[in-house]
Computed example of a mutant assay.
Amino acid sequence: MHDHQLTPRRRIRLTRLTSDAGLPHTGLVDATGYSRFKHGDAAVARRYAMALAALAARRLGDAPVRVTTSAFDRVPPAAHSLLAPFVQQLCTLRPDLTVTAFRVVRRGVSNGDYSRMALADRRSAVGADNLTPERDVRGALVLALDDIRVTGTHELAMDQCLLSAGVAQVRHLYIVDAHRFAGSPRIESVLNEAAIGGPDDLLAIAAGPRFVPNARFCRRVLALPPDQLSAFLRAAAPELRGWLSRAIEFDGLAGVSAYADRVRTWDAALADIDRTMGAGVG
């Protein structure tokens, strides 16, 4: 017999960050694996999702469960790659449960790299007023999957959004709890960048068999210096270049001040690649 709700703790985590040097180099959540996950390695995402599902399965009662991830507009964040394997594993471990997934829609995108923002900027970037559940969630028990908790700003916005929509309970599941470093939120960027030294690392992740591109991968490519961006574009598969171009368009990054110059650099580099390839064909 299971309890009828999660344990009183609001959060489940796979690990807690204990050092400002970053994550350890071994274990389920290691520095390289987490960084690769953040940039689209879905094989790592699956491992994290299955581990989170195992923890949740032991704490859930018999009430139906709705599962969601970080809110987004058009281009999903890394955390969204947790959703499908988490739901699949939870259903396997708890076939008695009714488990359904839903999305929280966010209007607009952050004006810059959220992981590098100070607390005040994070509060400006993410608010409950910009979030909307895509379906009726009144009375539901919601599990919200995310990669990391640092300041708790996104968690608070999700709580306000979901509770105002009539959700009965919200429980948050994280890969990393870094709230100890809430006063230095840029630690999040240290974790994100641990495995990314330049374009070759991004290309290696993209060449993997379980690559799922996401918003962070797109923005990290845009952040490359012009010479590295050109090298990336020359080596990238046409399908990847096409996806990145669509992601830039879908999220309207040309109209976001933090990205406008980078998008112009992208357009120029892409046009140069097209001219070079066209000349080669001729």
Rank of each mutant, 00 (worst) to 15 (best):
F72L: 01
A118V: 11
P77Q: 00
L162V: 08
I148G: 12
L156D: 13
R9V: 02
D261T: 07
A49E: 04
G255S: 02
E155L: 09
L222H: 03
G127L: 08
A42D: 15
R149Q: 09
L14C: 06
R246M: 03
T100N: 09
G40Y: 14
A140S: 12
M158N: 08
E155D: 15
A49G: 07
T153N: 12
L143S: 03
V99H: 11
A223T: 10
A63Y: 04
A125L: 11
R122Q: 15
A268R: 04
R135W: 02
H172K: 04
A204H: 05
V87F: 00
S257E: 00
W266R: 03
C161E: 08
A51I: 13
I205P: 12
D159M: 08
T276D: 07
A254I: 06
R16G: 04
R11Y: 05
H39T: 13
L119I: 08
A237G: 11
D227C: 14
G108P: 00
A215M: 14
M1P: 15
R46Y: 10
R186L: 06
R58P: 02
D73A: 02
A101G: 07
D177Q: 00
L82Q: 05
P199Y: 10
D20V: 06
Q228I: 06
V281D: 03
D200K: 14
D62T: 11
G282H: 12
L97R: 03
V142R: 01
Y48R: 11
L163K: 14
A125K: 10
S124C: 01
G282I: 06
V87L: 01
Y48H: 09
G282W: 08
P64Q: 00
A101P: 10
V29T: 15
M158W: 09
C91R: 10
L145S: 13
T32E: 13
S257M: 01
P76M: 11
A120E: 15
H25K: 15
A140K: 05
G255M: 02
G282T: 07
S230H: 12
V212H: 09
P226F: 13
G108M: 02
F86Y: 10
A206Q: 08
R16A: 14
D146G: 04
P8T: 05
G208M: 06
P209G: 12
A279L: 06
P213M: 12
R138G: 14
V104S: 06
A279K: 04
